[in-house]
């Protein structure tokens, strides 16, 4: 009996061991703390303050007075949304159960594609689907292949790319259309380019945030395309079509394509998104994400505000109205 009593008392005592020895006090969940927490997280880790010349403290001063102790969740969300949009970055989001903030990077330039025109007049009804790619032969003399790739989220296999290159081996060139491609998996950039490059090619260098200072980065981490041994050797010219809706992984692809000899970029500047977005949570449970890395071309250029095309082409209203894609037509001309 004595043993059991002592054991029970000891166990009870230990079960209430003081966690506060290790754990800090919980962060309060109120509008002011949530605002402060989000601001501080961005301040410590966001990677483009210097590049975009953003005074984050000034932005805090602008939005902090709008925070009230008694404001509703929706009101708080709107203030935080507005503050984050000062970063003008499509990789910045705030997510609550009732709203998701975003930055409309694709509205920074003209809409450079009309999907209906592409489907009706270029892909037509007899287009082929290979993995995530839709493709067909285009142009008056049918000497150019057109491949539409609208999302990097699909799984690309080397076999898909090999098939395309082999199938169109007698063409004078190939159009690879990534306009309005909002990104997805960066791994697909390499799955595609490893089938295209003829030698190991440095595509870009990436730098990861390593401290709270605006220029505290570690790196570089070099990204290479390395030719696959079993690739179909396609040495003809490739036109990659881009626009403001080309973002994130698709923008990485455009940046990488600049380093490949037989690729030319045609269209409008991309939407950027060359920073890897993280993820995290606020004291109230809302989720945020923002860029915590930056990516530079091998020459050291930062194209976070958009990878520029080699040939600037804008889709004209007149062309669109008569079922012509100005950008594709310019690409066909380039590949003849």
């Amino acid at each position: 009996m004595k043993f059991r009593t002592i054991f029970s008392c000891t166990a009870l005592l230990l079960l209430f061991s003081c966690e506060t020895l290790i754990f800090e006090q919980e962060v309060a969940d109120n509008p002011r703390e949530n605002f402060e927490y989000l601001w501080q997280q961005c301040n410590d880790k966001y990677s483009f303050f210097a590049y975009k010349n953003i005074d984050w403290s000034a932005i805090r001063s602008k939005y902090e007075p709008q925070i009230k102790d008694k404001m509703t969740s929706d009101e708080l969300f709107k203030v935080m949304f507005a503050m984050l949009n000062e970063l003008k970055d499509g990789h910045v989001n705030l997510i609550s159960p009732f709203r998701r903030s975003r930055f409309d990077f694709d509205l920074l330039g003209p809409e450079n594609i009309d999907i209906r025109v592409v489907r009706e007049h270029y892909l037509k009804s007899d287009y082929i689907i290979t993995g995530p790619f839709e493709h067909n032969v285009v142009g008056v003399d049918k000497k150019v292949a057109y491949i539409r790739y609208d999302s990097f989220e699909g799984t690309v296999s080397p076999a898909h790319v090999n098939f395309l290159l082999s199938y169109y081996r007698n063409m004078s060139g190939l159009i690879f259309d990534i306009r309005q491609n909002g990104g997805g998996s960066a791994a697909n950039v390499f799955k595609i380019l490893n089938q295209i490059v003829s030698k190991k090619t440095l595509l870009y260098n990436s730098y990861l945030k390593s401290g709270p200072g605006p220029e505290d980065f570690e790196g570089p981490q070099a990204a290479y395309a390395d030719p696959n041994e079993d690739r179909f050797k396609f040495n003809k010219k490739i036109a990659v079509l881009i626009d403001r809706g080309t973002f994130s992984a698709a923008s990485f692809f455009a940046l990488a394509a600049r380093e490949v000899d037989n690729i030319v970029l045609i269209g409008d500047r991309t939407g950027g998104g060359l920073g890897i977005p993280n993820g995290g949570q606020l004291p109230n449970g809302w989720t945020y994400r923002f860029s915590i890395s930056r990516t530079l071309s091998p020459a050291g250029e930062n194209f976070e505000n958009g990878v520029p095309p080699d040939i600037q082409v804008v889709l004209t209203k007149a062309d669109r109205d008569r079922g012509v894609d100005t950008v594709i037509e310019r690409a066909i001309q380039e590949l003849k």
Partner: peptide, 19 residues
């Protein structure tokens, strides 16, 4: 995980241990 917390997977290689 170090400062940036996540791996820089822009090289196409998502390695959870890298950072």
């Amino acid at each position: 995980p170090d400062y940036a917390y996540i791996d820089d997977f822009s090289d196409g290689d998502a390695d959870v241990f890298a950072n």
